[in-house]
Design a protein around this nucleic acid. Structure first.
Length: 423
RNA sequence: GGAGAAAUGGCAGAGUGGUCGAAUGCGGCAGUCUUGAAAACUGUUGAGGGUCACACCUCCGGGGGUUCGAAUCCCUCUUUCUCCGCCA
């Protein structure tokens, strides 16, 4: 959520930057400013009435104490009007505040200057590419065929138990999953992130805090009976650790990592690009989250990118880094880098990580602040990224590491899997 | 699931209708003292709105009510604790 004073002071700039996202926010921004003015006006009126009412109450108290009952009752009569006024004004203030919040919830974050123009993923900017694209043998298979051939992932069984998009990993497939999770967590903690185990369901306030609610609840599974949501990413419980928190400046930066399953309700389309592990309702992911001083958040973003780079290099998967265009950058993000690995057997790039700086957008909703050098409370910056999402990494390993007689396990994972080959 | 108790500032903990944004202690910060530190002493120390700055207003778990006036009384929701039951 953008800050109202920021909108007020940078109106033209905000509109121009939001235009990059292909939205015409002019009306919305004007409404915000008008509503905020109204809110402050009503607040001032209410304050005056309340001040008067407070004064009278004190006077009445004094009169009763000194036994001047008649005078006290005379003053009491005066408070009736004030009470009515304060009630009306109070309601108006509440309403203006709610309306303002509704508007603010509709406005996405303003993109950073580096964000390229564009509307779809085709407009994303490729920044970096590394790794060798392996030459596969004749008859190389996509991962869903490999999964069947070596009996390591059972999609049909998942269909039976839960539904489409809930695969069952078995045997060496399950072990490889566990190995990847452990490897990612170890790598992240070695880089200074503190490991957390987080709830997989969150309440409404948490959903609002990180920007999934309101309006985007369709993407989450909702347990209506208890009004809880299954997390779509560890970002939600992880970042909400810091909801309503005021940190000391010396406590920054904060870095945490956590593994969670992720649940996404969004009905994927059908066809080859969502086959197998490409798009799921439940998948595993290891997330990294940072809380930063505003002056260091972009350096932190770069550090996160370099960290993920090093993991993909250790796994020896060919990858590229994209800077997302405005149209593809998520609602709350100011700047996002995506990592994609190349799947040779599918002959396409697969997104495996998305790293974003939200600046103060989430912090403003979360009320996540730190006490700055002047002793003032200031919104912190939040960032997060996948390090890493499992299914497509698994797909990439299966497809790129396949040989005629099995699937080799990347060197760095062998101490975690306990085997060097599947098949 | 049943019965009871409770929710106050960073923490502990007073406050049961009137000058209470809230005693006191601890902690934090600043200063005095000290070569430095500790101890001791002094001062300071919640958040939000509002203002050029004051003033002023709001907040004692959330929401609603009673009253001229609510941290204090009532209703409701949430959470926590104790006991019992069940249970990985």
């Amino acid at each position: 959520m953008l800050q109202v004073p920021f909108i007020r002071e940078n109106k033209a700039d905000v509109i121009a930057r939001l235009a990059k996202r292909n939205i015409d926010a002019a009306t919305l921004i004007e409404q915000v400013i008008a509503l905020d003015e109204k809110r402050r006006r009503v607040q001032a009126q209410l304050d005056t009435v309340l001040a008067e009412s407070n004064t009278l109450s004190k006077a009445i108290g004094g009169l009763f104490k000194s036994g001047q009952v008649e005078e006290a009752n005379a003053l009491k009569a005066k408070t009736t009007t004030l009470k009515e006024q304060s009630k009306t004004l109070g309601e108006a203030l509440h309403e203006a505040g709610e309306d303002l919040k509704d508007l603010l919830y509709q406005i996405p974050n303003v993109p950073h200057a580096l964000v390229p123009n564009g509307t779809t993923e085709a407009d994303n900017e490729e920044l970096f590419k590394a790794g060798e694209i392996p030459k596969l043998h004749e008859g190389a298979l996509p991962h869903w065929e490999l999964a069947k051939k070596y009996d390591i992932i059972d999609f049909e069984l998942g269909n039976k138990i839960a539904g489409a998009g809930f695969p069952v990993y078995k045997g060496k497939g399950a072990r490889l999953q566990r190995a990847l999770i452990a490897y990612f967590l170890d790598t992240n903690t070695a880089a200074g992130y503190t490991e957390y185990q987080l709830p997989h369901l969150v309440n409404e306030a948490s959903g609002i805090g990180t920007g999934q609610l309101p309006d985007k609840e369709g993407q989450m599974y909702h347990v209506t009976e208890d009004n809880l949501y299954l997390i779509p990413t560890a970002e939600v419980p992880g970042t909400n650790i810091f909801r309503d928190v005021i940190l000391n400046e010396s406590e920054l930066p904060v870095g945490i990592t956590g593994y969670t399953p992720c649940f996404r309700r969004e009905a994927g389309s059908y066809g080859a690009h969502v086959r197998g592990l490409n798009r799921l309702h439940q998948f595993d992911k290891v997330e990294i989250i940072r809380v930063e001083h505003p002056s260091t958040s972009y350096a932190a973003l770069d550090a996160m990118v370099n960290h993920v780079k090093s993991i993909l290099e250790a796994l020896k998967l060919p990858y590229r880094i994209l800077r997302l265009c405005a149209g593809d950058t998520s609602f709350a993000s100011a700047l996002t880098y995506d990592f994609e690995i190349f799947s040779t057997a599918q002959d396409r790039w697969l997104e495996v990580s998305s790293i974003s700086n939200f600046e103060t957008f989430q912090a403003n909703r979360l009320k996540l602040r730190f006490k700055n050098a002047d002793g003032k409370n200031e919104l912190a910056h939040t960032l997060n990224g996948s390090a890493l999402a499992l299914p497509r990494i698994l797909a990439g390993i299966l497809e790129n590491y396949q040989t005629e007689d099995g699937i080799d396990i990347p060197e760095v994972l062998r101490e975690y899997t306990g085997f060097n080959k599947i098949g």
